[in-house]
Design a protein around this nucleic acid. Structure first.
Lengths: 143, 143
DNA sequence: CTCGAAAATCAACTGAGTTGCAATTATAAT
DNA sequence: ATTATAATTGCAACTCAGTTGATTTTCGAG
């Protein structure tokens, strides 16, 4: 999914230096087939280079504020992150109650719901997050 | 909203004793016009009686497992809780980026989306959570 | 009453995420 | 090239919502 993104260029557009840590994080997120926890990202970077966890958290927060990644508030007080490039449109997520793993679902047509979901009284709606909770096929077969 | 619920009876149905703390928590959740954090619930109970925070967390977890309350994974690593009685059907939530306050939105017709959202490959979908993030009308007027 | 289970308490812990500041690295100006 | 400047990263210590395990209290059945 990341193949089509030029991360150095993207960072430049955002006015950020294309540092090794930032590039590694974007590559890792781009190669991931699911949303990752900060800890997972940290471990994956550390297979390549020595990095401090604070750096990862700060970069994630920075990317998130710029809309380069989406921070997902899933179950369990651990945030998940996924790339928000043009090739990764927003989509619902499925999370298993047992193994806590997260799957990305196909984007659904949300435009119709949008105005309805905007809420009353002049709120400005910026993001929508849809989370489905249940039991994934793997955990269904176990129990 | 709680007026129509008989909390003692509800607890009995679930095989739980109608203890003062449990009743107080259900009443507080029933009177609330929005989803509450555990800490808020704790503070509200403490205006009436002396309670330990662990008790509140354990009861919330217990209610949540039984489907008596819904635990909402909103932004910020702090869970919110709302009553899940028959008079409180599931609904989307709006959360302000600035003041972090949570509003309940009107329930939308989700049945149509349900199968689509269930996800691929035999997952069992149990709950759906829709979170809208944005700027509430109060914070819009300030900035 | 009294005995056992359910419920509540207490202190200590966990762990994801944060903060402040120091050290490093890259960019720009001279 | 060299220094000034700002951006980035590292380190240690902290925060705080939520958890754990062991103990004490409460309640309802017999």
């Amino acid at each position: 999914m990341s193949d089509r993104c030029n991360f150095s260029h993207w960072l430049a557009l955002e006015g950020l230096r294309a540092t090794p840590v930032r590039l590694a994080m974007l590559e890792i997120l781009g190669e991931a087939s699911r949303a990752l926890r900060a800890q997972e990202i940290l471990e994956l970077i550390r297979t390549r280079r020595r990095v401090n966890k604070v750096t990862v958290y700060r970069i994630l927060e920075d990317f998130s504020r710029r809309g380069m990644v989406r921070k997902l508030s899933l179950e369990g007080r651990v945030n998940h992150f996924e790339l928000a490039c043009e090739h990764h449109p927003p989509h619902p997520h499925f999370q298993c109650q047992t193994c806590r793993e997260v799957q990305c679902l196909e984007p659904v047509a949300l435009n119709r719901m949008w105005t309805e979901l905007r809420g009353p009284l002049g709120n400005r709606a910026d993001h929508i997050e849809i989370r489905i909770e249940g039991l994934c096929h793997k955990c269904r077969n176990i129990s």
